[in-house]
């Protein structure tokens, strides 16, 4: 699903299908790397909670916004399910 995305350690993202490039924050890099590694979208808030000691609701909202942005940029399929705020 993400085989067209080349993400470097410093957050530089290259979409091999479109030629578009992006710079991700360290948080975005962590989330996208998790998705590329096979994490389900609804498992992403837990990744943020573990890494940054956030509360679950904030983490879920951040992940939802991040996924919406990815969908706007057509970096993930529009049918990727959004996470539920908890």
């Amino acid at each position: 699903m993400f085989d067209n995305l080349a993400l470097s350690d410093n957050g530089f993202l290259f979409d091999t299908r479109t030629g578009s490039t992006y710079s991700l924050s360290s948080t975005g890099t962590l989330l996208l790397r998790s998705l590329i590694a096979g994490a389900a979208p609804d498992g992403l808030p837990a990744v943020l909670v573990d890494e940054f000691e956030l509360d679950g609701r904030t983490a879920a909202q951040d992940v939802e916004q991040f996924l919406l942005r990815l969908r706007d940029l057509r970096l993930v399929a529009s049918d990727t399910p959004p996470t539920e705020a908890v």
Partner: peptide, 22 residues
């Protein structure tokens, strides 16, 4: 290739190779 920068005539002044099976 996708153009990354253009001249005022729309000609490629920079670009990058892409790989899209479609």
């Amino acid at each position: 290739m996708r153009k990354m920068q253009l001249t005022d005539k729309g000609k490629a002044w920079g670009g990058v190779t892409v790989c899209d099976p479609a």
